[in-house]
């Protein structure tokens, strides 16, 4: 409630895009929350009261303390943009949707993490998570379908070696995906949509 009120106060003080803010690096992205709430999936970020229900229900957080949705939102609200988008934290979400159901302020923490991922990709963040997400766009542009054979290669790079025993087992059981997936028909339509909406995003 209070945070929502503060939002309306903050709105009036947004500086122009060109105007450079002075002060330490850490607060230079004070309006990071604006970037997030501009995306449809991140629109509810300011409703967060930091109660921690999302972290309590998060199955990733149970095993990996770095995957803490409450902390990610806290950092985003503090404007620690660089820290958030270049960390591996945001790529740990397993999209189980538990936090979205449990959040009693309807913040949808999982969706906000999605929005932060969108910004991270746009700002050229690097890492396994980014490569994984980008591989989808690449495959869909080429084939219309996901290429399950090359997805681990793109994401894991040299660490693919440790998948060789599993790949052999899959080969024996006839489960190894073909490196050339089925192609969707009318790919010119798919590419047309890519051209149209990729351009829009710049």
């Amino acid at each position: 409630m209070i945070l929502e009120m503060k939002d309306s106060l903050r709105k009036e003080k947004i500086p122009d895009g060109d105007q450079k803010r002075t002060g330490p690096q850490r607060i230079s992205h004070f309006y990071f929350y604006k970037e997030i709430s501009a995306l449809p999936s991140g629109k509810d970020i300011l409703k967060c009261i930091q109660c921690g229900t999302c972290s309590a229900t998060c199955p990733v957080f149970r095993y990996n303390p770095r995957g803490n949705p409450r902390k990610i939102i806290a950092k985003a609200l503090l404007g620690l943009k660089e820290e958030v988008i270049h960390s591996d934290m945001i790529w740990l979400c397993a999209k189980c949707q538990s936090c979205i159901v449990k959040c009693h302020k309807d913040v949808s923490p999982g969706e906000i993490i999605s929005a932060i991922r969108t910004i991270a990709i746009r700002e050229g963040a690097r890492g396994a998570g980014v490569r994984h997400a980008k591989a989808f766009a690449f495959d869909i542009y080429r084939f219309g379908k996901l290429n399950e054979a090359t997805l681990p290669l793109v994401t894991l790079r040299h660490r693919i070696v440790k998948m060789i025993p599993l790949a052999l087992k899959m080969l024996i059981r006839g489960k190894l995906p073909s490196p050339l997936p089925k192609r969707a028909k009318n790919m010119q339509q798919v590419r047309g949509l890519f051209d149209r909406f990729d351009k829009e995003q710049g």
Binding site: P40, S41, S114, A133, A184
Partner: peptide
């Protein structure tokens, strides 16, 4: 239906929601 493409699996929507 040969026309169907991948649903994006939540990854494409992170890169480009509208696409």
């Amino acid at each position: 239906v040969e026309d169907f493409t991948c649903c994006g699996a939540g990854c494409l929507s992170e890169e480009n929601p509208k696409l």
